[in-house]
Design a protein around this nucleic acid. Structure first.
Length: 475
RNA sequence: GCUCCUAUAGUGUAGCGGCCAAUCAUUUCGCCCUUUCGAGGCGAAGACUCGGGUUCGAAUCCCGAUGGGAGCACCA
């Protein structure tokens, strides 16, 4: 038994999203499981789509995910080989040049009718092919001699090569005949030694084409495996849907935290490990499903909870004056039951507390400034006046978060579902919560993930001006 | 229209002919614990799409219906 070889073959035409992540993780982990090899292959066979920036961007996205490849190459590097194999097919009479216009071809394929181009002698076909490769001739493609009567429409003489005169980001204008997915995918999987190519199940009908091409060329046949595409409720994955939202300014970019792009998820504070666990929990079944994002959140929370520092966050702050509160210095633990260290706060008699919490209380009630002291409310107006009501924890009192006068303003962006059930943009998909946090938060690094008690997991960003933005991940 | 794939709780998922009055996670709700409405512990709720067949025995195999998805590109 040879060793297992898998591959992840993205087209370098955009940023990777969680759907790609599923494929990449499956490919990568499958190879690892069998101590095999994992290849990263850029399927850059369409110069109109491939773009230089994305070769690198996609690699960065993969590295962030924790995926490392044993080999990397571009399908465009193998075009000479593809040409050779194409000529072999022509020589064998298994491929021919077709000059029919696209609409006509579509028609004839639909009605299982062959065209006269199919009768071209292989020798002539080869001349025509060479002509196409070298000259500027237009209006022809190389087609597989398949089976026009096949019930599988993919088998009805599919295109193998077509002319694309656009400049390729890596190869420039060196080539003009570019292989289609059917041809390139089969050839590359076979010659690069891939043993277990995974792909999503919308390609199932093309399996027959894949194996047919390899049979004709007497090339090794890998073991194709298919799984269902991943879709998440309220989070469109396709470029077609995301791009307009960006262009209209409805989302901030490909790293908008509402997006299921890897960059968006990163920004939202979703860990690569959580994505991996989530993908594993999904498995590789062929069942169409629409997953709730809360499954991702649950994985993330489980990882983050024991390692993330707790801070006090006060949304919609209200000023509180506590009579006869003395100055003191308190040490607060960063985590209730894991030793993550502590921070030190100096307090006196002025605090800020969440408005919503106060609104639920009445004058005369006693609440607790968590980890500090109890306060009896004397008066609620624009500000609150209270008095110190002891330090011992009283059972049943509300424990609320607070800051002193030394605090920092922060705005928190809370992501909701980007689109509704009809795939219409949800204008309320991003909401903002303003508040203040302890000034100890200034010690937090840009990009660090913390938990604001009673609020949720938040990833902290510091902009150029030094002001704080929190990206809400989840509860 | 034709072809293919698919069908287990609200959402996912395990199950490969008997150990299934069905696993695990998530969700929601209780209780315990806790100086967070978080985490953790315990518990509850909740499913084999339908109809035939094969079999001593079917969630599991076969057929059909129905629902969902995909393909019928010179995109991948």
């Amino acid at each position: 038994m040879g060793k297992v070889i898998t591959r992840f073959p993205p087209e370098p035409n955009g940023y990777l999203h969680i759907g790609h992540a599923k494929a990449a993780i499956v490919d990568f982990e499958y190879a690892r499981m069998y101590n095999g090899k994992f290849i990263l292959r850029f399927d850059d066979t369409n110069p109109e789509h491939a773009s230089l920036e994305f070769y690198d961007a996609q690699k960065q996205d993969l590295l962030w995910l924790g995926i490392k490849w044993d080999q990397e190459y571009n399908t465009s590097d193998h075009l000479e080989t593809h040409y050779k194999l194409a000529e072999q097919l022509i020589d064998q009479g298994d491929a021919y040049i077709c000059r029919c216009p696209p609409e006509m071809m579509k028609e004839s394929r639909f009605h299982s009718k062959s065209c006269s181009c199919k009768n071209t002698h292989p020798g002539d076909a080869k001349d025509m092919w060479r002509d196409l490769v070298t000259s500027g001739k237009q209006g022809a493609i190389l087609r597989l001699r398949g089976d026009m009567q096949s019930a599988n429409t993919a088998m009805r003489d599919p295109a193998l090569f077509r002319i694309i005169d656009a400049a390729h980001p890596l190869k420039g204008t060196k080539y003009r005949m570019w292989p289609t997915y059917d041809f390139a995918g089969a050839i590359e999987d076979s010659i690069s030694g891939v043993t277990h190519p995974f792909r999503t199940k919308e390609y199932e009908l093309r399996d027959e084409v894949y194996f047919h091409i390899l049979s004709l060329l007497k090339l090794r046949k890998p073991h194709l495996m298919e799984f269902a595409r991943l879709s998440i409720e309220g989070m469109p994955v396709s470029k077609r849907k995301i791009k307009p939202l960006i262009e209209q300014g409805l989302v901030s970019g490909y790293d908008d935290p509402r997006l299921p792009t890897l960059r968006g998820l990163h920004r939202r504070g979703i860990l690569p490990e959580a994505i991996k666990q989530f993908v594993f929990s999904q498995g590789i079944s062929k069942v169409e499903s629409q997953v709730t994002f809360s499954l991702v959140e649950a994985c993330n929370r489980k990882i983050l909870d024991p390692v993330v520092k707790r801070y006090f966050f006060v949304p919609n702050p209200m000023k509180l004056f506590v009579k006869n509160a003395s100055k003191r210095t308190v040490h607060l633990k960063f985590h209730p039951n894991v030793d993550l260290g502590e921070r030190t706060l100096d307090t006196h008699n002025v605090f800020f507390v969440p408005r919503d919490d106060i609104m639920k209380m009445n004058e005369g009630d006693i609440f607790r400034l968590k980890d500090l002291m109890n306060v009896k409310i004397k008066k609620i107006g624009d500000e609150i006046t209270g008095e110190h009501a002891g330090d011992a924890v009283l059972p049943g009192t509300a424990k609320i978060q607070w800051t002193t006068e030394k605090n920092i303003a922060i705005k928190i962006l809370v992501s909701g579902l980007l689109v509704d059930n009809n795939e219409e943009f949800n204008p309320k998909s991003l909401t903002q919560v303003d508040g203040v946090v302890e000034d100890t938060l200034s010690a937090v690094k840009n990009g660090e993930i913390v938990q604001f008690e009673r609020f949720g997991i938040v990833r902290i960003e510091k902009d150029k001006a030094g002001s704080l933005i929190g990206i809400f991940a989840h509860k």
